[in-house]
Computed example of a mutant assay.
Amino acid sequence: MNNRQIDQLIDDFLIKTARGKVNPRVQQVTVRLLGDLFKAIEDLDLQPNEIWKGLEYLADTGIAHEMGLLAAGLGLERFIDIRADEADARAGLQGGTPRTIEGPLYVAGAPVCQGVARLDDGSEDGKAEVLMMQGTVRDEHGKPLPGAQVEVWHANSLGNYSFFDKSQPAFNLRRTLIADAEGCYQFRSTMPCGYGCPPEGPVQQLLNQLGRHGRRPAHVHFFVSAPGYRMLTTQINIDGDEYLWDDFAFASRDGLVPAVKKISDAQQLKTHGLSKPFSSIDFDFTLYQERSTLPGSEVERQRARA
């Protein structure tokens, strides 16, 4: 069957059979994707067993709640960001904090703190290195943004995220910080660890077939927003991690690998009430003002809520 015949078949299946009110956008997308799928089946001579195994794989991935991992691991989520970067460039936006993927492990409703917060519940005291992170939220002209919202979440020292890891309190290592009058935020936490896809899960099974690992470097996620400004979805990666530039989710980017300072000064330890050296990261966020010519910056997708 050639492409013209397939196009006619899709028209017969999806256009001519319409009897009720049609959503033009849904119809347009379905026609295109199904047509491309049919052409791939023809070009690759996919056999019925292969087609049904593919459908079963997608069903299994959904049951395992790994569709978010699949989107990250195949580069789909990074591709979405690339397109958004291109739209920013066409609009003349430059100099803001780079965006990168959200990933599948955000949980809505984290406790709100004013300016300063401790993210961890203390259960890893003496086991995990303390991390202090601080900075300022600014606009594209360098002006601080008082009251900006900084949502932060990351894994513990075992690479596990609260809510999904039921051994942790639901909002451990998750907070929403409101920047102070100078646009500053600060938090104390523990140094995160990288993680990998569940080894027996469907995403890792596919990655194995593709000869790829499923590891991520240690990182900290952020949503940063302020009224009248475009929401920023980003993360910083911990410098020195083995997988820093070999992230299975393709999320590592220049500008998102800040220096990690090792603090052992006695006075600073005393100030923070610590007896052991800790790590410190300085990182400022730069937000763009809203532009009516650009699509909305907040992505609508299903997210967990504790």
Rank of each mutant, 00 (worst) to 15 (best):
H213G: 13
H213Y: 12
H213R: 04
H213A: 13
G214C: 10
G214K: 08
R215P: 08
R216D: 07
R216M: 12
R216L: 08
R216V: 09
P217A: 04
P217D: 10
A218T: 04
A218W: 01
H219A: 14
H219K: 15
H219C: 12
V220S: 05
V220L: 09
H221P: 15
H221K: 11
H221G: 07
F222N: 03
F222C: 00
F222K: 01
F222S: 00
V224Y: 05
V224F: 11
S225E: 03
A226M: 06
A226T: 06
A226W: 13
A226R: 08
G228C: 03
Y229N: 09
Y229W: 08
Y229A: 05
Y229F: 09
R230I: 03
R230E: 02
M231P: 04
M231L: 12
M231K: 15
M231C: 15
L232D: 09
T233M: 02
T234A: 08
T234V: 10
Q235R: 13
Q235I: 00
Q235G: 07
Q235P: 01
I236R: 00
I236Y: 00
I236F: 01
I236Q: 00
I236S: 00
N237P: 06
N237V: 03
N237C: 02
N237G: 02
D239K: 06
D239V: 03
G240Y: 10
G240H: 06
G240P: 05
G240S: 11
G240A: 14
D241Y: 02
D241V: 00
D241A: 03
E242Q: 12
E242M: 15
E242R: 13
E242L: 09
E242A: 14
Y243Q: 14
Y243G: 04
Y243W: 15
L244W: 02
W245H: 14
W245N: 03
W245F: 09
D246I: 15
D246S: 06
D246W: 11
D247W: 05
D247F: 03
D247N: 08
F248V: 11
F248P: 14
F248A: 15
A249D: 12
A249T: 13
A249S: 15
A249Q: 02
